[in-house]
Write a protein that binds this DNA or RNA. Sequence first.
DNA 1: ACATTTTGCAACATATATATTACATTTAAC
DNA 2: GTTAAATGTAATATATATGTTGCAAAATGT
Lengths: 68, 68
Amino acid sequence: MKNIKLKLARVEKDLSQDELAKIVGVSRQTIGLIESGKYNPSLSLCIGICIALSRTLNDLFWDEEIKD
Amino acid sequence: MKNIKLKLARVEKDLSQDELAKIVGVSRQTIGLIESGKYNPSLSLCIGICIALSRTLNDLFWDEEIKD
DNA sequence: ACATTTTGCAACATATATATTACATTTAAC
DNA sequence: GTTAAATGTAATATATATGTTGCAAAATGT
């Protein structure tokens, strides 16, 4: 499933996928694939993205619907 | 760094590493290595662990100290 | 309309999470 | 103190996240 919360947080900060990727230290494709839900990123990468976007893990990667 | 919050949540539920691993669908070693901080787990595995232990990502994997 | 930036997508290479098996060590029960 | 369960650790194998390059498509600005 696409991660729309991540994309929203990114554009709210006025960052392109490439800019966010450089801040976090990964490739542009990796950011794109995470946003489109085709990658299962590592925890450390998720945390890096959260810090770059001033959000928490729950903000960007926790879906209340799924929590049983 | 060791993930002490994960270990605490697990023992609070009275689960061994092996039992949690079976619930989540990974090997016992994987749980042990995550607890001892030697693995960088995938997001989906983190979410599976959270659901199994009735916690959120922030509860188990977000360190307030690190958030800049 | 054109130019530029942004994003999507594909093929291949590499790094690393995870599985499996086995054994050692610690912990808990008796 | 012995036994069994729980955990640590190591070697090798596999799956997959991620990098790199390149090109196409879409979006944005002028």
